[in-house]
Design a protein around this nucleic acid. Structure first.
Lengths: 226, 226
DNA sequence: ACAAAAGTGTTTGAATTACACCCATGA
DNA sequence: TCATGGGTGTAATTCAAACACTTTTGT
């Protein structure tokens, strides 16, 4: 019989310097020496895939502050990597923008829209992660996973703009998230900037577990209004 | 080293008798003898998971008319099945409502809202498949995968109602799908029923590959209007 | 006072639901 | 001509984008 391995791979995304970035690791050895790949590794016999990906990120790249982890897809083409067959479960991982995890020397953050040459099918996985995040920002409360514990609406606007890849209006962002009950004011206010301006109120997300906040776009169940 | 197997499992859904049903197979042997399980089986060394699930459905339960197949998730708990470890990739499969595939004697269709005792984690997979379908009916053209090649709006309404689990209005269904360009008239009309009534126009889906038709619910990119 | 940044009020527009009404057919 | 669906017109509603305007601060 032929051998079979299972690995987990994570596209860890974070908003850094006002752009959405992914953590990649440069391969030292062939195959694909010099190319950039996703952190991850072999699945152990006593752990499920999510436990595994959290463990490996903590061990290998010191990413312990994952605010959200979710499965993306299985990549299983028989020749996706040379040598013995390896099936991969790919994950999306998110880190709040106020964290700056220690990462080893051979890893770097890259803007998801300007990836370096990637190993194997890892480039496709990054794009899949990016698209998943962008979709879910629209109909879930997933913003909590990118934002610090408390923030001003302007800061949140910058985070959403970076993640979505286009300018978002602070006004409308606040209204949409408030209407859905995602935001609550802390009561505190931030200090004004050096050039003046009204001090901004601080907010936090009401919930830090992912929830669908805008389920049915159309074909809603009949309303119960009498 | 410990052995590792990979299997694929499919929740095959179809609208039958105005309800959303799933194809299950009754286990003859322990473990979980008598319980109902999802069709599927071991992954071969030369095929990817989607190829495998299509092959196994064709071989084992004679389901060849799959109109749509997509990955749901990986189930990887170390003890999810007794004995040697098996990781499963679960799929959602859809069959148009006008097909009635030949299935073996030990398989039966069950309403997804009234499942029999299921084996292992298969019950959870069925519910995941049901929820995925219901979500995607709202923001993609996935209705094509449940509908016959041509249909009246009333027939389509019955299919959507069964799949979603609540009454859908034919009027609004037609308008939503038409506005999105999913439907086109064939020019033909169906014959009137035995009790009279205006003959219904026949429609078809313009596209039979899955496409997202209603991407951003909110936080849309800024409009380009001048 | 003035500039700068935050926050609110209000208009506009699009999408969807709800519902009344008209149309085509069989008996 | 009437019952039985099929199909269209249209109001009401909801939600979000756009933008003008007010508020609060630093200089």
């Amino acid at each position: 019989m032929s051998s079979l391995e299972h690995e987990v791979l994570a596209a860890v995304l974070q908003v850094r310097s006002r752009s959405l970035q992914v953590l990649l690791w440069q391969r030292a050895r062939d195959p694909h020496a010099g190319r950039w790949s996703l952190p991850g590794g072999k699945l152990r016999h006593d752990e499920d895939v999510e436990t595994s990906v959290r463990r490996q990120l903590a061990e290998k790249v010191d990413v312990r502050q994952l605010s959200h982890v979710e499965q993306l897809a299985v990549f299983s083409a028989p020749d996706r990597v040379p040598g013995p067959r390896v099936i991969a479960t790919a994950f999306l991982g998110l880190v709040p923008s106020d964290n700056d995890p220690e990462v080893p020397a051979d890893t770097r953050w890259f803007c998801v829209d300007a990836l370096p040459p990637t190993a194997f099918d890892h480039g496709a996985i990054v794009l899949r992660a990016r698209d998943r995040l962008r979709s879910k920002l629209s109909y879930t409360n997933l913003g909590f996973a990118l934002a610090p514990p408390t923030f001003t609406i302007s800061e949140l606007r910058d985070i959403y703009s970076a993640a979505l890849g286009y300018r978002v209006s602070a006004t409308n962002l606040q209204r949409v998230l408030s209407r859905r009950g995602q935001l609550e004011p802390t009561g505190e206010t931030a200090v004004s900037g050096p050039s003046g301006g009204r001090p901004a109120a601080l907010f936090r997300f009401t919930c830090r577990d992912m929830q669908v906040t805008d389920a049915f776009a159309v074909l809603r169940p009949p309303s119960l209004r009498k």
